[in-house]
Design a binder for these strands. Structure first.
Lengths: 158, 158
DNA sequence: CCGTATCCATTCCGATACTG
DNA sequence: CAGTATCGGAATGGATACGG
């Protein structure tokens, strides 16, 4: 039988899960927060097949989390942008990232990226300094507090 | 073909979704944070059939989010308690609740409950005062900030 | 009360092939 | 590049019946 809808639940947690409780949606939003807009970007990042990417993208648009616009590069295609409603999922992703960081082992060699909380995009140029003021170089690590971390990597699978 | 596992993903968000990305898990954790421990409590609260509740419960135990212990009431059965790992999902639920509160309409007449952040349980006795110091009574509402809110209701579906 | 065991319907995901 | 159209396999959810 069909899965029960929770869209009318009194609990806001349940209602949220009804909207973005599925697997791919949050990963798409994550990538969108990183600045991705084009179909092929999502496809490459997620390693998902076109048909289900299309389905998820359309579902997110239907729910007002993404919106389409003419592609910025002038091509005949559209791009997918987060709405305000979609951007506000940022907090959810921070919490998920933080939990995973602390409770699910990362594969060797993986790295985090920093996200600009104000502009809600990945920070591409960043100076990181240790407590003694020394500038950290590539390969060095430091602890960061929740809220500064949105989690990500440079691989193509998640 | 089979859904790809993200347990080895470099991104902590993806790893988290691999663990608790499914529908029921977070709702069970939510109820556990409210103090529920017994099979029948979850069953009644979620309105889920026994067989899938069993499946989800066991999965959560396997992943170290819940653990079983002899029932506190001395009966022959077990109860399910959150581990530290499970309790730390609190932040995720707060974020989900906050988003739903702001972006998914609540049905008429639904109410929120307050959660004690330190003990991570619902607050059963609570004085709520308006900015002028007046004590709010039943049926009155006020805005609360994220972090004070974990979302819930008094219905049996979510 | 707390499950286990079946059975069925639906949904979801992935591969592949095809199109403008 | 950005999809659409099928297809099959697998996991999921729900109903129900049964047992300790």
């Amino acid at each position: 039988m069909r899965r029960k809808s929770l869209s009318g639940a009194a609990c806001p947690i349940a209602r949220t899960l009804d909207v973005i409780g599925d697997w791919w949606s949050l990963l798409i939003v994550r990538d969108a927060l990183r600045g991705m807009r084009r179909f092929s970007e999502f496809e490459k990042s997620l390693g998902v097949s076109k048909n289900i990417l299309t389905r998820r993208l359309h579902a997110l648009v239907r729910q007002g989390i993404l919106e389409t616009a003419p592609a910025a590069d002038g091509s005949a295609y559209r791009e997918y942008r987060l709405t305000a409603k979609g951007r506000s999922l940022f907090q959810v992703l921070v919490a998920l990232g933080q939990w995973g960081h602390e409770n699910a082992a990362a594969p060797a060699g993986s790295r985090m990226i920093m996200v600009d909380r104000e502009h809600r995009r990945p920070v591409r140029k960043l100076e990181v300094r240790a407590s003694d003021g020394r500038l950290l170089g590539p390969g060095e690590t430091m602890m960061v507090r929740i809220g500064e971390l949105a989690g990500a990597s440079n691989t193509n699978q998640g």
